[in-house]
Design a protein around this nucleic acid. Structure first.
Lengths: 186, 186
DNA sequence: AAGAACGTACAGAAAAAACTGTACAAAGTT
DNA sequence: AACTTTGTACAGTTTTTTCTGTACGTTCTT
């Protein structure tokens, strides 16, 4: 028996209206995490859910197919915004929203931004090496070297930024960010 | 006369290949900034351009319509990833890539994340007020209050997070982040 | 003032993505 | 071992987004 269903219709509606506003807002802004409006909505629904939900329950509530719930939940799992919950003797998989949004934020950066850093740094280093090699092999060709130097300078600038971003992500991943910017207001 | 065009075909190709790898990588990861692959590619192209470019030049280089360049550049301008350049007596608008990626990163957060914070905090506060009002008007209804308290607690948790995020964005906006996580490696 | 060049609004076409229903493998129940 | 139940892969459909070509207002040139 769920506490929520026992309430009067009037009170239920009032609560649902309040929740809906928040869910809508969350869903709308979750594109910053690279997910669809509907996946964002799914997260918001899980956030207010009294208890962990099954795919079927989500589908019923969102009026969407189970397939969509499956893929949506998987995205949220990848982003660590949702946790799989174990319950004794439960046939179906259960999921609940991760409610520590600091952690969610930090994980997102650790996962997505680090991925981007690595890919870009890889490309930058490889290209820089090529350009440096070309420079060595063409001693004295002034106008070529002018172009090469400018490109190499740009690449070095980008690499410097990524070194910083990497260290910034470290602070998120390690939680050191909360020493630098404390959770409790000053 | 541009220095680049004066080079031998072999050298040009080598440089273009090196640039292309980086442009491709940048473009691919710019979805973190909420832009398309092609807009990301456009940024990468501008990043390596010897000089500011016109819409027509971009269209020629990207083999895309001028309309697309116009909308693409506007997006990049909104994200402050591209600057409009003034040149004496130039008919056409000229654009160049913002090469300070620290600034780009900070601006993105200031613009997009702050927008999300405000929208969500607004919704959370409004809903919290509604729920608190309902609570006051229903003194003694225990099971209702149990639900309300849980929702209010969740909302308060979210608000606490947004207060932190807001202060974090402040550090980006003010540049104080570079005191906390220095640009020069330790 | 007329003409040319530029950037963008807008509608339609093309491409990409989100979503669904069916089918099926894996795991659980009887 | 036969029968359910559950989650997901996959193909096809719908919806959304991206991209293009034309049209037009604005600005600059003459």
């Amino acid at each position: 028996m769920q506490p929520f269903d026992a309430l009067s219709e009037q009170h239920r509606d009032a609560i649902l209206k309040a929740r809906k506003r928040v869910i809508e807002a969350i869903g709308k802004n979750m594109d910053l995490y690279g997910v669809t409006l509907s996946v964002g909505h799914l997260y918001g629904m899980l956030f207010f859910s009294e208890k962990p939900m099954t795919l079927d329950e989500m589908g019923r509530e969102m009026e969407m197919s189970k397939t969509s719930m499956s893929t949506g939940v998987r995205m949220l799992l990848d982003l660590k915004m949702v946790n799989k919950v174990w319950e004794k003797g439960a046939r179906k998989d259960l999921y609940e929203a991760e409610s520590d949004w600091h952690q969610t934020f930090a994980d997102y950066f650790a996962i997505e931004w680090r991925k981007a850093v690595e890919a870009n740094v890889g490309a930058l280093n490889k290209s820089a090496a090529e350009l440096r090699r070309l420079k060595e092999q063409t001693d004295g060709e002034e106008s070529l070297h002018a172009v090469l130097d400018r490109d190499l300078e740009k690449i070095e600038g980008a690499l410097a930024y990524y070194r910083w971003l990497d260290r910034f992500i470290d602070t998120l991943e390690s939680g050191r960010i909360y020493e630098l910017v404390p959770k409790d207001e000053p």
